[in-house]
Simulated assay, not measured.
Amino acid sequence: MEWLWGFCILFENDIIMRKRHKQSIMDIKAKTAKGELLNIKMQLFNPYHMEKRTLFYWAEMYYHQIPKGSNYNTLKKCVTINILNYSCLPNDRYHSVFHLREDHTGIPLLDDIEIHVIELAKLDRHSVPLDRGGLVNWLLFLQGVDKSNWEVLKMNEPMLKKAMDTLEFLSQDAAARMAYDARMKALSDEKSRIEGALEEGMAKGIEKGIEKGIEKGIEKGIMKGKAETAVKLLALGIDIQTIAEATGMTREEIEALRQVQ
């Protein structure tokens, strides 16, 4: 898995890093020595529709390699790696790999598409030994394995030493530690605000519907509650797609609410 080594030495390669704080995503783009493109996403919270998002991001990376009219044989393999802090797929594997293959014979159509889904939450369901090298050591480190096991992980995977040394350095720096603590608090506050807005909006909607005492009133109340929830989330700066998924409203309905704010 060449992408693994690319992941291990990201800060020694030509990479583009974006941190979209509102969505709790770290998005890393890199290129291997062969010219293959990597898109590594680390996602703390479930944004929903991750499977469709993954295909969209992969297609975008593949499509933008060459300008229109150029030769298609210059297209390089693109690998998407999703490292998720939650369970996503209906299986027990913490590392799932997808390719494009024929249903009956299993022959690949093309090796250019490769998607890895790594679910840190599923590591707890496996008895993972700390005496072997490879990806699992990095995942245990990312998941926050007890520090007493760091030496074992480092022995199994020597390239982890650089990451551990960097983390140790940052943990000893007061300013860096304060920035980290502030970041964690912001993530918790954002999640609480979204959940609070949803609960408050739905509660108001149901309450107003019950007051009317008829089914139509309840339905209208719930719809009003959704609208109130959407308004609150818009005020918090949440993007329209996330609000639509959280409330069940259409993008057009939410856009109309934003127009009258």
Results as ranks from 00 to 15, higher is better:
199 E>S: 07
238 I>K: 15
129 P>I: 02
186 A>H: 08
169 F>S: 14
155 M>H: 09
134 G>C: 01
207 E>Q: 15
210 I>F: 11
171 S>W: 07
204 K>N: 15
138 W>E: 08
207 E>L: 11
242 T>G: 06
153 L>T: 00
250 T>Y: 10
146 D>Y: 05
221 G>K: 04
133 G>N: 09
194 I>R: 15
237 G>Y: 12
242 T>I: 02
229 T>A: 00
166 T>H: 15
170 L>I: 03
254 I>V: 04
222 I>Q: 06
191 K>A: 05
151 E>G: 02
234 L>C: 02
240 I>Q: 10
235 A>C: 04
205 G>H: 00
181 D>G: 01
169 F>A: 15
144 G>F: 14
158 P>H: 14
165 D>P: 05
162 K>S: 13
217 G>L: 04
255 E>H: 07
169 F>Y: 09
251 R>N: 09
205 G>C: 00
213 G>T: 12
142 L>Q: 05
132 R>K: 13
157 E>C: 08
135 L>D: 04
214 I>A: 12
193 R>N: 07
199 E>H: 14
178 M>H: 05
233 L>T: 01
151 E>C: 08
143 Q>P: 04
130 L>M: 09
165 D>K: 11
168 E>P: 01
196 G>E: 13
182 A>N: 11
209 G>M: 01
239 D>C: 13
176 A>G: 06
154 K>V: 07
206 I>D: 04
213 G>Y: 12
170 L>S: 07
218 I>A: 11
239 D>I: 08
234 L>V: 02
244 A>T: 14
178 M>D: 08
182 A>C: 05
240 I>G: 04
208 K>C: 09
231 V>Q: 11
166 T>N: 14
231 V>A: 12
223 M>K: 10
224 K>T: 09
207 E>P: 04
131 D>S: 12
188 S>K: 08
256 A>C: 03
137 N>I: 00
235 A>E: 10
168 E>L: 11
145 V>H: 07
216 K>P: 00
176 A>K: 09
205 G>W: 00
154 K>A: 14
198 L>M: 12
176 A>E: 15
132 R>S: 08
236 L>M: 13
212 K>Q: 13
169 F>D: 11
145 V>D: 03
156 N>A: 06
147 K>Y: 08
146 D>S: 13
185 K>P: 00
220 K>R: 07
137 N>V: 03
135 L>C: 03
247 T>Q: 00
224 K>V: 03
168 E>S: 15
213 G>A: 10
151 E>R: 10
179 A>Q: 15
243 I>G: 00
176 A>I: 05
198 L>D: 00
218 I>F: 06
232 K>A: 09
222 I>R: 08
252 E>M: 06
134 G>E: 03
256 A>F: 03
208 K>W: 06
252 E>C: 04
178 M>Q: 10
215 E>A: 13
151 E>L: 09
216 K>C: 02
174 A>N: 06
169 F>T: 10
238 I>S: 13
210 I>K: 15
184 M>A: 05
131 D>G: 05
253 E>C: 03
181 D>H: 10
160 L>P: 02
